[in-house]
């Protein structure tokens, strides 16, 4: 069976409790001027992968493995969020 294409998003963000000066600065100097409804802003890094895979779960595992083994994040201070989206361009 032909493998499908998936878009997999990897978001790297500081763990709760680890200070985030970039997010705090954006909150204080930009966001707060426009709205008092936003209580917190946090900054992170976003990576988007196009992955060939048989299933959504497998695509997610591939990215999780890369993130862990290549230290795309530092587990001491960061947490990761992985989200899978089927690639529209793959058809059916």
């Amino acid at each position: 069976m032909k493998e499908l294409l998936y878009q997999v998003e990897l978001i790297i963000i500081n763990k709760d409790g680890v200070r985030d000066p970039e997010g705090e600065t954006i909150q204080r100097y930009v966001v707060r001027k426009l709205s008092d409804k936003v209580l917190e802003t946090r900054a992170g890094k976003y990576l988007l992968f196009r992955v060939e895979s048989n299933s959504s779960d497998e695509a997610k595992e591939v990215v999780k493995k890369i993130a862990n083994e290549s230290r795309l994040f530092n587990p001491l201070v960061h947490k990761i969020i992985i989200r899978v989206v089927r690639d529209e361009s793959s058809g059916n």
Binding site: T25, I26, Y29, V30, A43
Partner: peptide, 15 residues
């Protein structure tokens, strides 16, 4: 300025 956060110059631009 402002640690180059977000993009270099972007926070200062909002002052």
């Amino acid at each position: 300025s402002f640690g180059d956060y977000l993009r270099a110059g972007s926070i200062a631009a909002n002052t």
